[in-house]
């Protein structure tokens, strides 16, 4: 491994697999079974653990389930109707989009800067990289609870810090109202997304051959020009992976909001995922309907992104 640094995963997009998939040529023994022995375990596991509950979920969204959990028979499309009549749904969906776009965009931007920074050589680079890992190594739930604790009006040390720095006059109830809760929760979401994203981009940076920089320097290009015309384009595959994974994770993110505000007051700080969870307290069927809608939304979101970024252009 030290002898050869293989190109990073970032170099080839997951979706398009190998650089040169070759047709099956020699058929002997196992090969006669084709891909089955190789990929069947994955498919079985997915069918067993993911698809089965998904089927249950879709079925549940058409059922009338009482608050105690008892199935009272078919509800037809009533639960979907009820869901779309919820007065808060519109705001929840808008906030879901804002939440996803802001968190993913800022995560990507900051990660680009971090990757660039931690790709330089400086004393203590290893240790600082370790520190970068912390939000990843710690559970997202714990990090969110930690921030909730630090932001508490009566007990939170962040209030003391901001008072000492002169940002605020007195302790604030940051998570109590949506106008301040959203920015803080977004900050936490970005915070926990940075390590993975930065590492992906770091891996991408490593795949750029030094000669390219060499050539660019000889051409007399400035640092910024080099970055824009060489680094960024070559970073594209890693960047795309980062965006797609983050899009899915941030859209589906639940523990941060749940731990910090429970989506409240009311539904003021709920994304569709949190909304779904809160609906479960009163109506399991409606909550399942929300999950189905949610899934449709994330698929659309990812497809739009793949289309826009022309993910498959090299395929």
């Amino acid at each position: 491994m030290s002898l050869k640094a293989p190109p990073s995963p970032a170099e080839t997009g997951g979706g398009r697999g190998g650089r040169a998939p070759r047709p099956v040529s020699r058929r002997s023994g196992l090969a006669r079974l084709g891909p089955l022995p190789w990929i069947a375990p994955v498919i079985l596991l997915i069918l067993f653990v993911v698809v089965w509950p998904v089927v249950e979920l879709v079925r549940t969204s058409f059922l009338n389930i009482s608050i105690s959990g008892k199935n009272r028979g078919s509800a037809g499309t009533d639960k979907y109707k009820k869901l779309f009549e919820e007065t808060d749904l519109g705001a929840v969906l808008i906030w879901t989009v804002i939440w996803t776009v802001v968190v993913v965009a800022l995560t990507m931007l900051i990660s680009l800067a971090l990757a660039q920074l931690f790709n330089q050589k400086f004393p203590g680079r290893t240790i600082t990289r370790w520190a970068l890992i912390a939000p990843w190594a710690a559970s997202v739930l714990m990090t969110a609870i930690g921030f909730k604790w630090m932001l508490n009006q009566t007990a939170g040390v962040l209030n003391t810090l901001m008072m000492d720095l002169g940002f605020i006059d007195g302790p604030q109830d940051w998570l109590g109202k949506s106008s301040t809760a959203w920015p803080w929760m977004m900050a936490v979401a970005i915070f926990v997304s940075l390590p993975f994203t930065t590492y992906t981009l770091l891996a991408g940076l490593q795949t750029i051959p030094g000669e390219v920089y060499e050539a660019s320097r000889i051409d007399g290009a400035g640092t910024w020009q080099t970055y824009r015309h060489i680094t960024l384009p070559m970073l594209r595959p890693a960047f795309l992976i980062g965006v797609v994974i983050n899009l899915i994770n941030v859209f589906n993110s639940f523990p941060i909001i749940w731990a910090m505000t429970q989506g409240g007051p009311g539904y003021d700080t709920s994304t569709s995922m949190v909304f779904m969870y809160k609906l479960k307290e009163t109506d399991i069927g409606e909550s399942a309907a929300m999950s189905v809608v949610n899934f449709a939304l994330v698929v659309v979101l990812v497809l739009i992104f793949l289309k826009v970024s022309r993910w498959n252009e090299e395929d």
């Binding site: 089927v55 549940t60 639940f254």
Partner: peptide, 14 residues
Amino acid sequence: LVTQMFQPTALLIG
């Protein structure tokens, strides 16, 4: 890829 989009949180009852 689709598996990645489903979160266990939404599938707990199932």
